[in-house]
Write a protein that binds this DNA or RNA. Structure first.
Lengths: 200, 200
DNA sequence: TAATCATTTGACTAATCAGTCAAGAATTGT
DNA sequence: ACAATTCTTGACTGATTAGTCAAATGATTA
């Protein structure tokens, strides 16, 4: 089995953190290596390039966060409660991050995605994939709500609107470096749903 | 008056274009100079640093685009028509840009802002300023609509929601590199307003 | 114990980065 | 024509960039 190592995992963790809190362009391979206490040679032993690391780091982050999303969007919960829970989760996560780093960090997929969408097709595709995976949770909750005749909105279109609203508010909050912006997330999302609520 | 020159203007123009279509981090001072056919020494004759150029370039772009926004949001027009016109303008502009560069470019303020918000406070503040200037148009239109008793939504909160929706959809469209996403802009915005429309 | 294999080490390249500078060129006002 | 002012030129610095490599190390297995 050769020599055991946790360098790969450390690199993935550090890379995701640095890229989210700063940006892809301003974080160098040397920075990542230094922070992870890994030599450059080891870096390139595990990853063919910086952009491959970024992709792997984001995929790994998804892998770690997925159980939490599964919990939030558990079919055990009433569908609209899932979405409410998700809004709170998004806000809470931003609060934690902002407290840790001193500024609002926004959506990690959006940050990497928007920085490199026009430059690196593989990274754009990965960002899209991650966004779409998130979207699917919302869509599924809306579909369940529809089945229970709670709403009339088309689940796919509704999910896209809700997710775009979240992306937009996170972006707005990051640019204004102001967490209070996110207080609007839950009401805005609920209004999107509510506008199409079936009056009993 | 010394030697006349349009180097400054060329640099502003080229910088805005390159940063919007690529990213701040991936566009070097050398690239900008080469594209503008200006020597590096001239660059630093006009601008103290790369980030100062970026700020000046974005400010200059605003200066050029402002008349068009003034036209779109002319008080001569019915307030909700202004917003409708603005939605169409945003979509049209993205179509033009995408045709020109082969990919959806998204909102330039959001792109620069989200890339550097956590890194460069002056750039973050400028992005915020530009976003807020745009917001003011929407807010003013909503205020006029309120005065005419067309809507009940609070203008400031409504404008924030509408603008966030636009930011979110532009971001979503950029990450998916898909212009069709923007077809949702006008209906989504109108639903935000419509949900608070006063029934005659 | 010896062979095997994955990982580590750190020095190395060649390109690129933002930014500097001193000397020269072009314009205007006198 | 001359001085003052503004802009241009292009070579230069020193730091940083992504990526390479051959030799060394250490754990596992036979």
């Amino acid at each position: 089995m050769g020599r055991p190592s946790d360098a790969r995992e450390k690199l993935l963790q550090v890379a995701f953190d640095l890229i989210w809190n700063q940006s892809y362009g301003s974080v160098s391979v040397d920075h990542i290596c230094a922070r992870a206490r890994v030599n450059k040679g080891s870096f390139y032993h595990f990853f063919p390039s910086k952009s491959d690391l970024a992709i792997a780091a984001y995929e790994e982050h998804w892998r770690e966060k997925q159980p939490e999303l599964d919990r939030i969007f558990s079919p055990q919960l009433p569908p609209l409660e899932r979405i409410e829970l998700w809004c709170k989760y998004v806000c809470e996560r931003q609060k934690r991050k902002a407290a840790q780093y001193g500024h609002v960090c926004g959506c990690p997929y959006a940050s990497l995605g928007t920085e490199l969408a026009t430059q690196d097709e593989k990274i754009r595709a990965k960002a899209q994939e991650l966004v779409d995976r998130n979207l699917r949770y919302v869509e599924s909750a809306l579909r369940d709500a529809q089945r229970e005749e709670l709403i009339s909105i088309e689940p796919q279109a509704g999910a896209k609107r809700i997710y775009s609203t979240a992306l937009g508010l996170l972006l707005y909050a990051k640019i204004h470096n102001n967490l209070k912006v996110l207080d609007e997330l839950e009401p805005a999302v609920m209004d999107i749903i509510g506008a199409h609520a079936l009056s009993a």
